[in-house]
Simulated assay, not measured.
Amino acid sequence: MAATKKNTYGDGVDWIRGSIIGKGGFGSVYAATLKKNTENKLRFPSVMAVKSSEVSVSTTLQKEMEIMSDLKGSPYLIECFGHEATISSDGTFLAYNLLLEYCSGGTLGERIKKSGDKGLPESEVRVYTRCIVRGLYHMHGAGYVHCDIKPDNILLVPQVNNSASFTAKICDFGLAKREVRNFKKRRITRGQNWQGTPMYLSPEAVRDNIQEAPSDIWALGCVVLKMLTGKPVWEGDTAGEIINKIGAEEELLPDIPDYLSDEAMDFIKCCLWRNPSYRFTAQILMDHPFLDGLTEDGDSYRPTARVMFDRPFLDGLSEDDDDEDSDSEDDSFGDSYCFAKAIVDDLSLYSYM
């Protein structure tokens, strides 16, 4: 049943449903405001985004709720305040609702479109990229893969101390899944078809139906390239044409314009190795020079989740060394990037080099 009126899914105990602000494959999203007489003003913000679908087809939303509960604690992932069932305005069905953080800045995709396909200033891209990297680090450390990183799944929230600047937050966990970290099990369970948006799919997703943490990093590289250029990462009139290019035996790669800064080009290259074993991790990318010197949301936040790797190229980069003379954890993050970069510079497998 399609939702066409604002009250099709009904109001909540503490909130009133407003106009529709978005619609996807798994539900419609509405703005919602708290009722004046509610006793839960401390539990909910005054404005929320409510993602709804009929209970009979709400399996994905319920799964999303479980995943978001597991991922609490990162300011770079959209916050979930709970869930609630409502009765439709005509009393004919029940609706399942996720109560989510409202992001008044809209989506990153909308922000890119406003640039007129010219791309965003690099200074702005760096801010959004750091937020996304930190969000992915938290997700991957908790054992989850997003599987659909793209501009439309990144929301912008005005910063508390500067309403003209935004923090980027990852949203829409409907396709997210537990990461399979054992390579043998990964090969056994890869029979399912890929999920996500063709433009941002990794080669291993297209060829082998494998979507793990490196696939999110590939998508991140595509998102950064899209932000900087304003243009599609791949040329193609249909999803099939794009899929064929990504999975091509010639091992094609997206074009990176030479007018970008050296740091921006290198960051994108670190994400777009066709072999997922050579892609940098979110942990290492946090200390890439492209993200240096950013202090707009403070430097105190450092995700606590640890990332375990089964990729040969990155062995030894995820855990602190046992050397008694090792430096602090913060220093180890910078060291891991330098070490990984040194190895990359010695490899001849990278098509961009």
Rank of each mutant, 00 (worst) to 15 (best):
G91C: 09
T33A: 11
V47Q: 12
G316F: 02
V50I: 15
Y200A: 01
E324P: 03
E296K: 02
W234R: 10
E101H: 02
P158T: 03
D321K: 10
Y278K: 09
F290T: 04
S300N: 12
P75D: 03
S89I: 08
I268R: 00
M1C: 08
L61R: 11
G240M: 10
F267P: 01
R186K: 14
A164W: 05
Y350T: 06
F267T: 00
G18I: 00
G105S: 05
T86K: 06
D117S: 14
V50L: 03
S52F: 03
P45E: 11
M65E: 07
L228K: 02
T129L: 07
V206L: 08
K169S: 04
V223R: 00
T33P: 01
K35Q: 12
M353R: 14
R279F: 07
T295E: 15
G298L: 05
K245A: 06
K177N: 12
F267D: 00
Y76P: 01
D321L: 09
F183P: 14
P303C: 11
P289N: 01
N40K: 15
Y350L: 14
S328T: 15
G141D: 08
K231D: 10
A168S: 11
R302T: 14
T107F: 08
G316P: 07
H83A: 15
G316Y: 07
V206F: 04
S261L: 05
L317E: 03
G298K: 09
A142M: 13
R181I: 09
V145G: 05
G236A: 07
S52I: 09
P312C: 04
G106A: 06
I343N: 01
L120Q: 05
L201D: 00
E110S: 12
S332E: 12
R126I: 08
D70A: 14
K6D: 15
F26E: 02
P303S: 13
D335C: 02
T167D: 04
C80Y: 01
C131L: 01
M68I: 02
D255C: 11
V133A: 11
G91I: 09
G316W: 01
N209I: 02
C222Y: 04
Q211E: 15
D330K: 13
K5F: 09
M68P: 01
H138P: 01
D70T: 02
K72Y: 01
S115T: 15
I188M: 06
C338V: 11
D299F: 00
L120M: 14
E179M: 03
K113M: 10
I246V: 09
Y352L: 03
S52T: 15
M199K: 00
L201G: 00
P232G: 10
Y352S: 04
C338Q: 12
E250W: 02
W194P: 09
Y337L: 08
T4L: 13
Y76D: 04
T4R: 11
A32Q: 10
S261C: 08
T295N: 14
D346C: 12
I132D: 04
S123D: 11
I21N: 03
M65N: 05
E235C: 01
